[in-house]
Amino acid sequence: MSLRITDGIRYQTMLANMKTAQKGTGDLVEQLGTGKRINHPSDDPAGAQSLIEWSSARSEIAQYQDQISSTDLWLQTTDLALGRVEALVEQVADLAAGNVSSGTGERQAAIDTIEAVRTELLSLANETCGDRYLFAGTNADEAAFSIATDAFGNRTYTYEGSGDGLTVAVGRQATLEYSTTGDDVFYENGTSVFRILEDLSTALASGDSAAIGQAADDLETLSTRVLEAQSINGIRQDRLESARAYLTNLDAKLADLVDKTETADTAALAVQFSQQELALEASYKLASRVGNLSILDFMK
């Protein structure tokens, strides 16, 4: 029996072909419109899974980069503060060394300078970055040093901060301790620099050469320690910079992967689109012709 192509099936086949061509065109229009190859998870389940994982990884990198930026500001502020502290300590150390056996007038002038330095040092010790105290360690919400004055006008300096430094995550497994604690840079032999300066003033006032000499030595040692702290701070800045460079590189690689997975190849799509358009046009043309072909046209 020969193949019978019946009228119903002619129309059904035509309809099915037209639907296929329309769906193909619709899919391509969506991809061209959004510029994306994956518009719904089901377009590429494995690709969609990777995109989510990469997006999370990039968001995490952005977190680390944010933290690095704010930590960088902190380290720069610390660097400036420590530079100034070192200069001031060095200045008073020199002053003390030069006044071991000077006259009363010179010593009084030195006392005035020392008082000014003490005030500035205290302000530097309580320096903040944002609203957090640079030298208070993990107790960064409170001023690093407090002063209590008793009934006789004697001042007591207390370190309110913590001995532990603040840390920041700069990678999944990498944390960096970034804060310089006040008990490191403002203390010598268990005595705060403010106390040393007060004692120095007293010694200068009374002309106690031995005490002046001791204070000069202590301040000299302290200034070296501040220098050390400043160089450690510098090393931290370097580490942060290299972490930032690594993360930027990683982010760029991930961005590239996302781009390759997600972005549609517009040139290829455009070619496919014109092919699909042709198919659709053909199916329309066929639809307009198919009804005309019948034996009825030839019967009179």
Binding site: L3, R4, I5, T6, D7, G8, I9, S294, L296
Partner: peptide
Amino acid sequence: ANVSGVSLD
């Protein structure tokens, strides 16, 4: 349709 469909021709 090949077997059971109606062909007008």
